[in-house]
Amino acid sequence: MHKISIYGASGHAKVVLDCIRSNSNFTLGYLFDDNPAVKELQGIALSTASQKKIEAYPLVITIGNNKIRKKIADQLQSVIAPPIIHQSAVISTTSRLGDGSVVMPGVILNADAQIGSHCILNSGAVIEHDCKLANYVHISPKAALAGNVRVGEGTQIGIGAQVIQGITIGKWCTIGAGAVIIKDVPDGATVVGNPGRIIK
């Protein structure tokens, strides 16, 4: 059994902790957070983030904000954990997951999908065959990507959003909750509605 530390004691961390607990290969190492006001999470006391403790076990960065997660990951790349996958997720044997990524309960990841590092596949998300997600992407609960979708670095796909097959979504985009994406999306765009329209 391998110990995994968590960096970031947030609500997101609670779900990642459940993923660790659901997996017989992993157990919790240390729990860290930069906020001095935070003392514990679900009864687990926070540890002081000394260099020795940070390097003791591989860690997963449990911060939902993609930009902040990237900033911390850039400082801690040498100690990043392998992907953490909840036991209820359905993961194709031909898919690939980058280090530091987390897969929540009920996710479906289909054939030949490629997921970058430090991605979040949130509860009930569906990532179909041949999708390619760059690093730091967050797919929110119940969002669905049809086959051959490309998603650029740092983009967030909102809760319940749907993306039709073959679409390319650029870097650091925000796709609103429930949006239906039927056209390619350029870098940095914010898209809402059905059909999706760029508002920013």
Rank of each mutant, 00 (worst) to 15 (best):
Q162E: 09
D184F: 01
V149F: 03
Q162R: 14
G152F: 02
T168N: 13
R150H: 13
I159K: 02
G154M: 04
Q162S: 15
G160R: 13
V180Y: 06
I167V: 15
K171Q: 15
W172L: 00
G147N: 10
G158N: 06
G188L: 07
S140L: 01
V192S: 12
N194P: 02
A189H: 08
R150C: 06
G196M: 11
S140T: 13
I164V: 15
G176Y: 12
G170I: 11
P195M: 06
G152P: 06
G176C: 09
G170T: 06
P141D: 10
G193N: 12
E153W: 01
I182Y: 00
A146W: 10
G170K: 08
P195H: 08
P141N: 11
R197G: 00
Q156R: 03
P141F: 09
A143Q: 08
L145K: 07
T190N: 13
I159N: 10
R150A: 13
V163P: 03
S140F: 00
Q165M: 05
K183G: 00
I182H: 01
D187F: 05
V192C: 09
S140R: 03
G176A: 03
T190D: 04
V149L: 11
L145C: 07
Q156Y: 00
G154C: 05
A189D: 01
G154Q: 07
S140N: 11
L145H: 05
E153C: 03
I159Q: 13
G160F: 13
T174I: 08
V163L: 12
G178S: 12
I169H: 06
G147Y: 11
N148D: 15
S140Q: 05
K183L: 01
V191L: 14
G158W: 05
Q165D: 14
Q156D: 03
A146Q: 11
G166K: 10
L145M: 12
D184W: 00
L145T: 03
G170V: 08
A189R: 10
V149P: 04
T174V: 11
W172G: 00
G176L: 07
I169V: 08
N194A: 15
G166C: 12
I157V: 15
